Amino acid sequence: MDRPEALFARRYVAIGGRGPEDVVADARGRVLTGVEDGRILRLDGLIDPEAVRVETLADTGGRPLGLELLPDNGLLVCDAERGLLRVDLGDGSVRVLADTVAGEPLRFCSNVVALSDGSVYFTVASRRYPLHQWLGDIVEHTGTGRLVRLAPGSDTPEVVLEGLQFANGLAPSADESFLVIAESGACRLTRYWLTGPEASRGEPFVEDLPGMPDNIWRAGPEGPLWVALAGPRVPPLDVLHRGPAAVRHTAGRIAAQVPFRPTGMIGALAVDDEGHVDHHLIARGSPFRMVTSVCEAAGHLVLGSLREPGVALCEPPAPK
C-alpha cells in the first residue's frame, strides 16, 4: 500500500442529530444519512457549507445504519433494531422488508445494496452482540457475520455467506460480477462472486488493511470504492484473535460493557475493482472521530460517524 496522504477537513457541519453512521450522495449532490434517534435526514447546499439545509425525510422508529438509494425515489435502510426497511422519500412511509433471517430475529443489519436485476443483498454484522455492544464482537472475534440475499419479489431472505468477522460495508463491482464486503473484525475486504465459475464463493479481496473498514460507497461504475476506516489497527487485538475461544469470549463480554473511546486517527481508502488502493487518506489528532462512512458530494469528501453530531467536509485527493 502506498504511503498515506493527508486527509484535510475543510469544515464540520452540525446536522441536529447524533451519529450519522452512513452517508450517501444522490445525483444532485445532496447527502442522506440516518441518526441515532431514528430520523433519516437529507443535507442540501453542501457546495456552500454556510448555507446547508437539513430536512427530515422519515423516522424509522429504530436506529438506521446503512443506506441505499433506489431509482424510484425509495431508500433501503438497514436498521439495527427493526431489520431491513424501505422508505418512500416522497411521503416518508416506512415498510419492513425483512425482520428475520433463517428463523432468527434480524439484529444488527448493517449495510445494503440493490442490484440491477432487482435483487437486494445486505450484511448482518453479528448474531451475538447488538449495536450498543459492537465492541464485544470485535474483541471476541465471533465470526457470526453474514451476507444475506433478498430475491426479487421475495419476502424471505436467504443466507449466502457465513463466518464473516463483523460484516459491515457492502458495494458491487462496476459490472456487478461480485460484491465487496468490509469485514471490520478482520481488517480486510472480501469478494463474493455473483457470476462466473466462482459464483457464490467468497475470497479475500484486500487484506491487511491499516484499520478497521466500515461502510463502503461508490458514486457509479466509473468511481472508486470509498472505504471508511473506523479506527486504526490494534496489534494486541490481532494477538488476542489468535488465542483460545474461551479467552476471547471472556474478553468480549468485558469489552461490551466498557465505554468506547475512539482515537483521533481517522482514515479512508479509495479502492478499484482490481483490489488496488488508489488513495489512502489519514488524519491524526482529528477532533472528528470514528469515521464510519465516506462519500463524494458537491466537491467534498463527506465523512459520517457513529458518534459525532454532524458530518465533516474534507478536501478530495488529487487524481493519480
Rank of each mutant, 00 (worst) to 15 (best):
L57Q: 12
L57F: 11
A58S: 15
A58V: 13
A58H: 13
A58M: 11
A58T: 12
A58E: 09
D59K: 15
D59R: 15
T60Y: 15
T60E: 14
T60L: 13
T60F: 13
T60R: 13
T60H: 11
G61P: 10
G62K: 10
G62W: 12
G62S: 08
G62N: 11
R63C: 10
P64Q: 01
P64R: 06
L65I: 06
L65R: 06
G66I: 05
G66P: 10
L67W: 05
L67F: 11
L67P: 07
E68W: 06
E68S: 09
E68T: 04
L69S: 03
L70K: 07
L70A: 10
P71R: 07
P71H: 04
P71M: 00
P71V: 00
D72G: 00
D72R: 09
D72E: 11
N73R: 08
G74K: 10
G74A: 09
G74R: 04
G74H: 11
G74S: 08
L75R: 07
L76P: 10
L76K: 06
L76W: 11
L76V: 03
L76Y: 09
V77H: 03
V77S: 12
D79G: 01
D79Y: 14
D79S: 11
D79V: 12
A80Q: 11
A80T: 14
E81I: 15
E81L: 15
R82K: 15
R82E: 15
G83R: 11
G83W: 14
G83D: 13
L84Q: 13
L85S: 09
L85T: 12
R86P: 04
R86L: 10
V87N: 08
V87G: 02
D88I: 02
D88H: 07
L89R: 06
L89P: 06
L89A: 07
G90I: 02
G90Y: 00
G90Q: 05
G90C: 03
D91C: 04
D91P: 01
G92K: 06
G92V: 02
G92H: 01
G92F: 05
S93W: 02
V94A: 05
R95E: 11
R95I: 07
V96R: 01
L97S: 06
L97G: 01
L97M: 07
L97D: 05
A98N: 06
A98K: 09
A98S: 02
D99V: 02
D99M: 00
D99Q: 03
D99R: 08
D99T: 04
D99Y: 04
T100H: 08
T100A: 02
T100F: 09
V101N: 05
V101I: 13
A102H: 03
A102N: 11
A102Q: 10
G103E: 08
G103D: 06
G103N: 01
G103W: 08
